[in-house]
């Protein structure tokens, strides 16, 4: 196998990897924000609010990410919103991830003993304040491993945004395949990079989780 091309085009893989990590990082942040809002909506006692969140989550989970990506990429300009490609990509992946994160967070919040809410309320704190000060900080600690997992999933799934021309790892790999007329070997390099990324993150998360449990 001729791996000569790596020394020539390593810059392509490097910048692609950086973009993939950036995309995944901001999508997890965005997804968490969307997820928190959706989770709180799902826990609401107001039926329409609850319904709206459920409908959103079901829609996102029931349609392919690729379709959602196209809907946002081609749909937003229609309503007069023109985002840079990278931002549109982050936006689409965040909205998608938010639906999954919402379920993670809802589970986390429901795992907190209901005495915590009662204690907060009995001190005169509002529902919202108790959520913010008491429930969510505790829930967050419980759901951190699942969130880390979501980060890994997003790193892998973000490959799909190459179809709208975002210069992340998969896109760059395709470029190298084109320039070198090698359809196969650059993919091996990409696969190895993806694996190293996800594997080291999962190892790192494992360590972080253990040290957090130690402080309990």
């Amino acid at each position: 196998m001729d791996l000569e091309f790596i020394t020539t085009y390593y810059q392509f893989f490097l910048s692609g990897t950086i973009n993939t990590v950036l995309l995944a990082f901001f999508s997890v942040l965005g997804g968490t924000m969307v997820g928190v809002i959706l989770a709180l909506m799902k826990l609401s006692e107001k039926k329409p609010v609850k319904f709206l969140a459920s409908a959103y989550i079901e829609f996102v989970r029931g349609t392919p990410l690729l379709v959602q990506l196209f809907l946002i990429y081609y749909g937003l300009p229609h309503i007069g919103i023109d985002l840079p490609d990278m931002v549109a990509g982050i936006f689409a992946v965040s909205l998608n991830s938010g639906a999954y994160v919402a379920e993670i967070i809802r589970g986390g919040i429901q795992s907190i003993d209901k005495g915590q809410m009662e204690a907060g309320r009995s001190l005169g704190m509002s529902y919202k304040m108790t959520m913010k000060e008491v429930i969510i900080p505790q829930a967050f600690k419980n759901i951190l491993p699942a969130l880390g997992n979501e980060f890994i999933v997003i790193i892998k799934e973000s490959a799909i945004v190459s179809v709208i021309g975002i210069h992340e790892l998969m896109y760059k790999t395709d470029v190298v395949r084109g320039i070198t007329y090698k359809p196969f070997t650059p993919l091996i390099v990409a696969a190895i990079i993806y694996f190293v990324l996800t594997f080291s993150i999962s190892k790192f998360l494992g360590i972080a989780e253990r040290s957090m449990r130690a402080s309990d």
Binding site: G115, Q116, E118, G120, S122, L123, G124, V134
Partner: peptide, 14 residues
Amino acid sequence: REKMGMVFQQFNLF
């Protein structure tokens, strides 16, 4: 509720 303190069986400290 500010004026009515409550102490629970399970303490419910944060």
